[in-house]
Simulated scan of single mutants.
Amino acid sequence: MTPSRQTSKVTLKDVAARAGVSISTASLVFSGRGPVADATAERVRQAATDLDYAGPDPTASALRQGRSGAVAVVVEERLLHAFRDPFALAVLDGLAQELDALGLSMLLVADHGDGESNPLAAHAVDAAVFPLCGRADSSLVDHLVARTIPIVGAGAPAHGSVVHVMVEERAAQADAAQHLVDLGHERLAHVTMPLAPTPPPGPPRTVSRGEIADAAYADARERALGFLDVAPTGTIVEASRADVAEGEAAGRLLLDVPAAERPTGIVAQSDLLAAGVIRAAESLGLRVPDDISVTGFDAVDLPWLDHTLTTIEQPGEAKGRLLGNLTRRLLAGENPSDTPFPVTLRLGDTTAPAPH
């Protein structure tokens, strides 16, 4: 019987010796972070192939550096919904660009907010980012704080240890509502994003000012309050999700009524909701903006919409890059403060003077 051959684990040192280079040069080839002549790099890669060397052990590297090389990016609910939202995708893209430049990877985590499961318990991460404004509180924050992991947010969770990129949500939404008032609109309505993680099942519904004040989601609450600052008697409808279908359902609820009761201006908390409202209006034979004016929020690219929305311009990619920049500063040992992120009203063709 032929005895089994005893093999030992191939190391970077073995690869460097076979290629005739120093260990540091071989390391630069695998990390891609330093200038190495093409011929030398090819020699190192060939040596690795000959020896069946897959590359440096990332766990060992993390132990040496005291870093995992990963940043937790926490998204509420199912990731599917975030990937269907063009604004969320733009924010994640900007964040990914900044983290990639730092040599950091993104660990996408879905936080269901049940307080029972902890998706981060088994993962080593260098920092955590909550890139999309969600619940005011998160059970993950206490866990991260206990591990002394830096945390960056976009207005939520509300915690003294979280450094935020801040948008003046209330003032911005008030600007959109005021634009309609300045155009002569007196009957205004507002379509909100979900006010809580588990909105009541069923179609969109009207909500009271009291429900808004108690909303769990800070961005939806502040935008609704901004609308009420300008239109205190306006009707408010809550959508169960910030997408086109929910916007269309909310639009029908508001517009499929006698003309004397119908709002002439609708302020939506997202561009997708606004697009749904426009679909509802046009399906009911109403003209936008002649019969009904509509505003959105975010200024995402909607090439399939036959309108240019009047909306609050909030550049998602730039916001994501700012979140990444704050993450970099925290990891460098700095102590940055909450950073404002300015947004502006962008005029489009979905608003016009109120019909007579």
Rank of each mutant, 00 (worst) to 15 (best):
D14M: 07
V257D: 09
H143L: 07
H356S: 15
L104V: 07
R321G: 13
V207I: 10
H159M: 08
K13A: 14
A224L: 04
G234K: 10
K13E: 05
A281H: 07
H164Y: 11
Q97G: 06
T264V: 11
P204Y: 03
D85S: 14
L107D: 03
P340I: 14
T344F: 12
S68K: 08
Q173R: 04
G226Q: 06
D93R: 15
G265L: 06
G210Y: 00
V294R: 12
T295F: 05
M1F: 00
P35D: 07
D142W: 01
E211T: 00
A154M: 09
A249H: 03
P203R: 12
L12H: 12
R5N: 02
D214F: 00
F87K: 11
T59G: 15
P263Y: 10
A90S: 15
L195I: 02
R262W: 05
R64W: 09
E211D: 04
T7F: 03
A174M: 09
P119R: 10
A218C: 01
D175E: 11
E238D: 00
R18F: 01
L99K: 08
D126Y: 05
K9I: 10
P203L: 07
V181T: 15
E238Q: 06
V207E: 01
S4E: 04
A250N: 03
V257C: 12
R18D: 03
P157M: 07
L326A: 11
V29K: 09
L89R: 14
G155R: 07
D114I: 00
R205C: 01
R287G: 06
L330A: 11
G247V: 02
G32N: 07
L102Y: 03
L144Q: 04
E261A: 14
E334N: 06
L99F: 07
S61N: 13
D182P: 06
P340D: 12
P3N: 09
S24C: 07
S138T: 10
M1R: 06
V109D: 05
L255M: 10
V288N: 13
P3R: 14
G348Y: 05
A146N: 11
F83V: 09
G210I: 01
H356W: 02
K9P: 05
A274R: 04
L120E: 01
H143S: 13
G115L: 03
E238H: 00
P263T: 14
L326F: 06
F83H: 09
P232Y: 10
P35S: 10
S283G: 14
S139N: 04
F227D: 03
A352V: 12
V163M: 03
S27Q: 09
A189F: 05
T192P: 01
E168I: 05
I23W: 12
I236R: 00
T49W: 00
